[in-house]
Write a protein that binds this DNA or RNA. Sequence first.
DNA 1: GGTCAGATATAGC
DNA 2: GCTATATCTGACC
Length: 151
Amino acid sequence: MKFYDLITVNSNLTYYYIYNDELKIVRASFSKKIVEGLKREENPHFNEIFKTYFFKRKPLSEIEYILPDTLTDFEKSVLEETKKIKFGKTATYKEIAERIKRPKACRAVGNALGKNPLPVIIPCHRIVSSTGPGGFTGGIWIKKFLLKLES
DNA sequence: GGTCAGATATAGC
DNA sequence: GCTATATCTGACC
């Protein structure tokens, strides 16, 4: 059984997350679409963690989550490296590519991050292009908002 | 400013 | 199944 809950960040930004009965996050998004058909079950534990991040601007606590097993090793590596980026820091697509021994696979890195099932928890917004802000699924303004939040 | 490289997914044949 | 095309890019021409 899966449930979801949400955090209202501001008037036009809401963070939705889905968790299972083992209290592990399985999916998150800034779009309402991923939670359609699911039952909302408020969860004080996760709620508190996300509130601390969004409103007190503190690093996200360790959160238990499950990555879909449909991800390839390459994608898992990308997400793992991304997760190592500290609060307030940024990295480039190239740096991630180099860390997973694929220095020329920077474009593939972008692709993997674009499919990131757990935005914020896996801080894909901290990955920027060397030529500009890069992109962000759902809107670049969300990325800018998150970076500003951490600055 | 165009092109190609790298991993993957999806669409079309 | 294979080819073409599209991605949150970067390097080299």
